[in-house]
Simulated scan of single mutants.
Amino acid sequence: MLDQQNAPLLEVENVWAGYIKDLDILQGINFHILPGELVAVIGPNGAGKSTLAKTIFGLLTPHKGNITFKGEKIAGLKSNQIVKRGMCYVPQIANVFPSLSVEENLEMGAFIRNISLVSLKNKIYDTFPGLANRRQQKAGTLSGGERQMLAMGKALMLEPDLLLLDEPSAALSPVLVGSVFEQIKQINQSGTAIVLVEQNARKALSMAHRGYVLDTGCDRITGNGQDLLNDPKVGELYLGAGMAH
């Protein structure tokens, strides 16, 4: 059971951000995650889900509002500065180095660590047994599901306190989706807090401690994952055919 008395690991307060000046996709969004929590971010296409992840990770700079990580303001910091503070981000696409082997990808993930990587790599292979047999295989030859697992493994080489996952199930077959979500759950159970940005809303909410429903750049509805899953309003508006794969 999570300790609700904990101070948030990450807090986003009244953040406005976008890609073009004076055209904000995020419009006063509020969001937080506690240490060890798994929080799902769902909503229709264009709601601002991926924009939120990119803004938290410093790929976009908020025009207004604050972002605090471990009690320190990080809005305006570059991604490499945020990584050093204990946060990693796995984008939806282009998340591995296709010409490098599985092992080399993991080593690239730990580029800022000046320690022996043997035990870390072994830990990743224990978490993702499918990668262990392919350590010398080029990442570009992996299946979509294996590539997602490698992308997560690469991020975990830094042993982050917070992992941002942007649409990890996108374009995967139903069998692989189940496998990827199972791995996400295990990573969270090992103590890593996870922000899970997902189009597969039912699956994400069913395993999340809490969820946020985004719409037009605002946090419309928040609550316990199961409560959102069973909320008729959420079901009607956001768990329709397009989101209930």
Results as ranks from 00 to 15, higher is better:
L60P: 00
F97W: 03
T222D: 01
E146Y: 13
I115M: 13
T127H: 10
V180A: 05
T127S: 14
M152P: 01
V83L: 05
H209W: 10
T192A: 02
M243T: 11
Q136C: 06
D161W: 04
S101H: 06
Q226N: 10
Q27K: 15
N95S: 02
I187F: 01
L10I: 09
F31L: 11
V177R: 00
A170G: 02
N66K: 14
N188T: 02
A47H: 08
L165V: 14
T51G: 13
I194F: 00
L131M: 09
A47Q: 08
P62C: 12
L165N: 01
C88T: 13
Y125M: 12
L60G: 10
L2S: 03
T141V: 14
L156E: 00
Q92H: 11
V177F: 09
P44I: 14
Q148T: 07
F97Q: 07
L172P: 03
I112L: 15
F128S: 04
V39W: 03
D231S: 12
L23E: 15
E159Y: 03
N200C: 01
D24Q: 10
K78D: 04
E104R: 14
A155N: 03
I56P: 02
L106V: 01
M1P: 08
V118S: 14
Y89E: 02
K73V: 06
V234Y: 10
L120R: 08
A151N: 13
Q189N: 05
G109I: 00
I112R: 11
D22T: 09
V175F: 14
G71K: 11
L9E: 00
G76F: 01
T51F: 06
A40W: 02
P168T: 12
F57E: 03
A40N: 05
I29A: 06
V96L: 03
A193S: 05
G28V: 06
Q148G: 02
H32Y: 15
L2K: 07
P232S: 15
W16G: 00
G36C: 07
H63Q: 14
V39Y: 07
V41I: 15
L77N: 05
G211D: 03
D227F: 00
G28W: 13
G65M: 13
A193T: 07
P174Y: 07
G58P: 07
F57L: 05
P35L: 13
D219F: 08
A7H: 12
E37A: 13
D3E: 15
